[in-house]
C-alpha cells in the first residue's frame, strides 16, 4: 500500500526567489517521516509541489512512477493538510459540510474513524468552521488528514495553534492510525523535540536544498556531547567536528557531529560523561549558521 514518492531534480521559483533548488529525494518506506527546516527553507513549497497544488518550475515529481501534477490517479492518493487549514471553507460551512466534502473526494475515507476522532477532539458536527478557535480548526484539519487515510499524507505545521495536551493527543492518534494503516506520512513541525521519537526518517532542508536524509535512529547516533574536565574533553574532541562548546569553570561540554566510531568508548574510558545529541539539537546546530530569515 505504501507508494514510492520520487522527486527528480526539482527546482521551484516564485518570481526571482528560488524556493527549491535542484531537489532529488525518494521516499518509499512506510513510516512517519520528518521534514525539518527553518522558516522559509522550502518545506511548504516542497509539500505543495508534491500534492500538485503548484507546478514545479523544473524537474519531475512522481508517485509510483505517475506524474502527480493534474493527474487524479496520483493526486487522489495524496492528502496535504497545511497550517492554514485550506481544506475547509470559511464561508458558511459547518464541520458536517467539511466531512461531507471529504467523504466525496477521498477514496480511502473512513467515516466511522472520523466520527471517533470528532469525539476524541471534542468537536461537534454542528460547529461552524468560521466560529472555531485556531486550535479547534487545527484539530479539525488534522482529523481530515487522518481519516482520509491517503497512501501519502502530509501534515505541514498542521497543529500550529493546538495547545500541548492536544498536540500529544494528535501524536498518539497519528501513531495509532499509522500502525493500523501503515503508509507514507510526512510531517513538518517546529515542535521537533515532541515528535522526533515518532520519526523513522528525517529530511532536513535548508535554503531550498536537501541537506540531509537518513533514518532517525542513525541520525540520533551521529551527534554526541562530551562533558568533563576541559583538558580531557579537548584531548578527546581534537580533530572532531565540533558543533558547539560551552564551559563552566573547569568543566567543558562539547557537541560533536559525525564522530569516529570509537570516540564514545574512548571518552568514557577517559572518565567523561557522554550523551547522544537529540535530533532537535542536531537540527538546530546544522541549520544555525544561517542568520535571520
Amino acid at each position: 500500500m505504501t507508494p514510492t514518492l520520487s522527486l527528480d531534480t526539482v527546482t521551484h521559483r516564485y518570481g526571482d526567489t528560488l524556493a527549491l533548488d535542484d531537489v532529488s529525494l525518494t521516499l518509499s518506506n512506510p513510516g512517519i517521516h520528518g521534514l525539518l527546516g527553518r522558516n522559509g527553507s522550502g518545506k511548504t513549497t516542497l509539500m505543495s509541489l508534491v500534492a500538485g497544488l503548484r507546478k514545479a518550475s523544473r524537474g519531475a515529481i512522481t508517485l509510483d512512477g505517475q506524474p502527480v501534477y493534474e493527474n487524479f490517479a496520483a493526486t487522489s492518493q495524496i492528502c496535504i493538510i497545511r497550517e492554514s487549514g485550506d481544506t475547509t471553507s470559511e464561508w458558511t460551512e459547518t464541520i458536517n459540510d467539511g466531512l461531507t466534502l471529504a467523504r466525496d473526494m477521498r477514496p480511502y475515507w473512513d467515516d466511522a474513524y472520523a466520527n471517533r476522532l470528532l469525539d476524541r477532539f471534542q468537536l461537534s458536527k454542528k460547529h461552524k468552521v468560521n466560529a472555531l478557535s485556531r486550535g479547534q480548526r487545527a484539530k479539525f484539519a488534522c482529523l481530515l488528514g487522518l481519516a482520509a487515510r491517503a497512501p501519502l499524507t502530509m501534515f505541514d505545521e498542521s497543529y500550529l495553534g493546538m495547545d500541548a495536551p492536544t498536540r500529544y493527543d494528535f501524536y498518539d492518534a497519528l501513531l495509532e492510525d499509522f500502525m493500523a494503516h501503515p503508509r507514507l506520512i510526512l510531517v513538518s513541525s517546529h515542535h521537533i523535540e515532541e515528535i522526533a521519537k515518532l520519526f523513522e526518517e528525517v529530511i532536513i532542508i535548508e535554503d531550498g536544498r536537501v541537506m540531509l536524509h537518513e533514518s532517525a535512529d542513525a541520525l540520533r547516533g551521529r551527534g554526541l556531547t562530551l562533558t568533563g574536565p576541559a583538558a580531557a574533553v579537548d584531548a578527546i574532541a581534537a580533530g572532531a567536528n565540533v558543533l558547539s562548546e560551552k564551559t563552566l569553570g573547569s568543566t567543558k561540554m562539547v557537541a560533536l557531529y559525525d564522530v569516529a566510531p570509537d570516540l564514545e568508548e574512548r571518552a568514557r574510558a577517559a572518565g567523561l560523561e557522554t550523551a547522544l545529541l537529540p535530533i532537535q539539537d542536531i537540527f538546530v546546530h546544522l541549520t544555525a549558521k544561517r542568520g535571520k530569515d
Binding site: 512517519i32 498518539d172 501513531l175 495509532e176 499509522f178 521519537k197 515518532l198 520519526f199 523513522e200
Partner: peptide
C-alpha cells in the same frame, strides 16, 4: 512491536 511503540510513543521501526 506495535504495543511497545504505542506504550513508549516511538516509531514502530525503532
Amino acid at each position: 512491536t506495535n504495543q511497545y511503540a504505542s506504550f513508549y510513543a516511538i516509531n514502530p521501526a525503532t
